[in-house]
């Protein structure tokens, strides 16, 4: 999104993350195989691999969908957001393997094209319970592929953050398709209460988190929507050094940062992926987004050269020790004299 692009911006942290992630994937598949062979030796290796990758992808999808709301509910989970894209692409690879093996197992041995077979072998499209569940999985995989393919910052910049984010919100549609793929697929063949219980727990967990996080954010937005004119932030003592306090003004959020005995206010929305700048901190004199480390100068909201991102700044004033912020944003990247703490 900035001066130049690289395939993946590898660093030590990312390498460790990927090593741990893929070790987990390998251990999960090995453990799944061991337990299945132990309790059901009749199972074929193909079926075993399909089940292992299917359950693993489902588990990973639940983890991925939990990270966003968890980070909104409690700042301590913000660290998990940093490498969420690696987790997402890895999950797509696991789900893709599940899809390819399914296609080979169920649709490649006939005399029609496997994709034609996928869509035409079960034609009960008007039935609920007999609906061709593999088609649901196919479309979920298609969405996940689209997301994995556009996960790079090049696409984020090309598509614009707003469109990119909207596109990536299709993950919720993919999640719904996956849930119904499982319900109308394996749960029809194996009427296992445990299996259903685990699925229901996952569904309750993910939807509960999203509903709760949405309710919290909605509450903050409603409380802030009545504010007019200058908005009181509090005293300078309310803000930790190199950190910010977020205020809600007219549905949007402003981050007021304290650093080196001064105060500056910028939009809380990072230009990269709309991350919450106010939950980040000042590193090397720059506001650093907690999601992916994008940086902005607090005085003018500009990213340091050679980067080109800019966010809006806001005027600040202090009356009787209380800091007030103007709800009217300056132009993006416009210098605003920091308020010196007296």
């Amino acid at each position: 999104m900035s001066a130049s692009y690289q395939g993946v911006l590898w660093n030590r942290q990312k390498r460790i993350y990927d090593f741990v992630l893929w070790s987990f994937i390998a251990v999960y598949i090995a453990l799944f195989a061991f337990l299945n062979y132990r309790f059901d030796p009749r199972i074929t290796p193909e079926t075993l691999f399909i089940r292992a990758t299917g359950t693993l992808a489902l588990l990973m999808l639940h983890v991925i969908l939990s990270i966003g709301p968890l980070a909104r509910i409690d700042k301590r989970f913000l660290i998990l957001l940093y490498n969420r894209r690696h987790l997402g692409v890895s999950m797509f690879l696991v789900a893709g393997t599940h899809g390819v093996f399914n296609l080979a197992q169920f649709h490649s041995m006939g005399n029609v094209n496997p994709f034609v077979s996928l869509f035409s072998s079960n034609m009960h499209y008007t039935s609920f319970i007999n609906f061709p569940f593999q088609v649901l999985g196919f479309f979920a995989l298609l969405i996940l592929f689209m997301m994995a393919a556009t996960s790079h910052d090049f696409w984020l910049n090309t598509l614009t953050p707003r469109l990119w984010k909207s596109l990536h919100m299709l993950v919720y549609v993919a999640y719904a398709l996956v849930i119904m793929h499982v319900v109308l697929g394996v749960l029809q063949l194996e009427h296992e209460p445990t299996l259903f219980g685990v699925l229901l727990f996952g569904l309750t967990w993910v939807s509960g988190l999203h509903l709760y996080a949405g309710w919290l954010e909605g509450k903050r937005d409603r409380e802030a929507s009545h504010t007019e004119g200058w908005v009181a932030v509090g005293t300078s003592d309310d803000i930790e050094d190199s950190r910010a306090k977020i205020v809600f003004v007219g549905g949007e959020r402003i981050a007021v940062f304290r650093y080196n005995g001064k105060l500056s206010a910028v939009s809380n929305v990072c230009k990269h992926q709309n991350g919450p700048l106010g939950e980040g901190k000042i590193v090397d004199g720059c506001i650093t987004c907690p999601w992916h480390g994008y940086q902005y100068r607090p005085e003018d909201g500009c990213a340091p050269p050679p980067f080109k991102e800019k966010v809006s700044t806001f005027k600040l004033k202090m009356v009787n020790g209380i800091i007030y912020v103007s709800p009217k944003p300056n132009a993006e990247g416009q210098f605003e004299e920091p308020l010196v703490i007296g």
């Binding site: 609920f128 919100m169 919720y172 319900v183 009427h191 569904l203 939807s207 509903l211 949405g214 954010e217």
Partner: peptide, 24 residues
């Protein structure tokens, strides 16, 4: 986007629970 998230989940949750339970 916050608003869109809220709407999506309010729509998805009943659909998914009804779909999952009736499917089972």
């Amino acid at each position: 986007l916050r608003r869109r998230h809220r709407i999506i989940w309010r729509v998805l949750v009943p659909i998914l629970f009804i779909g999952a339970v009736s499917g089972y």
